[in-house]
């Protein structure tokens, strides 16, 4: 059984935000616009956050791209009253938009602030509809949405592998952000398969996870020479 995970090399990330835009394009994330931005309601499943330390001129900083951590012990799934979010056998924390009642309890329970709520009806102007990815549904108003590790790609890849009667290979399934990273900072794969790069990188001495002390066991690892 696969355990999908991600490794993000912060020493390589230069904050270009290609992953954010690739994710928007892949997952039909609606444009919030200036109004939503001023109200802090922009939805972005992948967020490049900057950590700045020190004072001018002795200042340093790094970019931390943050998708959903897909915790092995996700605090969000436990609190959902309607099973709209759960962790599946391969470790992907999903969100079923048709089930969600929009109570936002999961968003509050998430220590990483990576669950997003559709405060308004997601706006996709009619002329942009042909550009929507048909593999991902357009969310209705009033539900939570989040990074799914591009699980629609997994569905297609697995189907393709079965059509070709072969096992699923490492390159068959990757996320849009990992695909798009120009510096190759984001690597995606099966953490339990020693032949996958993520498995090796997640054991790198530079590896750490966000808020490790909370015991959520995230499956997104970060690499950094800095502590």
């Amino acid at each position: 059984m696969a355990r999908w995970g991600m490794v993000i090399d912060l020493d390589k990330c230069n904050g270009c935000q290609a992953c954010e835009v690739a994710c928007r394009s892949e997952n039909n994330i609606a444009v919030g616009g200036p109004q939503a931005a001023s109200e802090h309601r922009t939805i972005s499943w992948m967020q490049v956050r900057a950590e700045v330390e020190g004072e001018w001129p002795d200042i340093r900083s790094r970019f931390v791209p943050q998708p959903c951590m897909h915790c092995d012990r996700p605090p969000c799934t436990l609190v959902c009253p309607v099973q709209a979010t759960s962790i599946d056998r391969e470790g992907i924390v999903n969100q079923i938009y048709a089930r969600c009642i929009g109570c936002r309890y999961c968003a509050n329970a998430c220590p990483y602030t990576v669950k997003f709520f559709n405060w308004h009806k997601p706006d996709h102007p009619a002329s942009t509809e042909p550009g929507l990815n048909p593999d991902v549904s357009v969310r209705p108003v009033g539900v939570i949405e989040k990074c799914t590790f591009c699980s629609h790609r997994l569905q297609k890849a697995r189907e393709m592998a079965r059509v070709e009667t072969r096992p699923l290979r490492e390159q068959d399934f990757t996320t849009a952000c990992a695909d798009s990273c120009p510096t190759g900072a984001i690597v995606f794969g099966n953490l339990d398969d020693p032949t996958h790069r993520v498995a090796e990188l997640s054991r790198d001495p530079r590896a750490f996870r966000l808020q490790e002390g909370l015991g959520t066991e995230p499956k997104v690892y970060y690499l950094s020479r800095r502590d």
Partner: peptide
């Protein structure tokens, strides 16, 4: 119908990479 713009992995300079602007060309 174009639904996504990725980098061309064969391109000798960008080597499959693409900046966010290039990806947003769809819009």
């Amino acid at each position: 119908r174009p639904v996504r713009i990725d980098g061309n992995p064969l391109h000798p300079v960008s080597q499959g990479g693409l900046c966010p602007k290039g990806r947003a060309g769809l819009q």
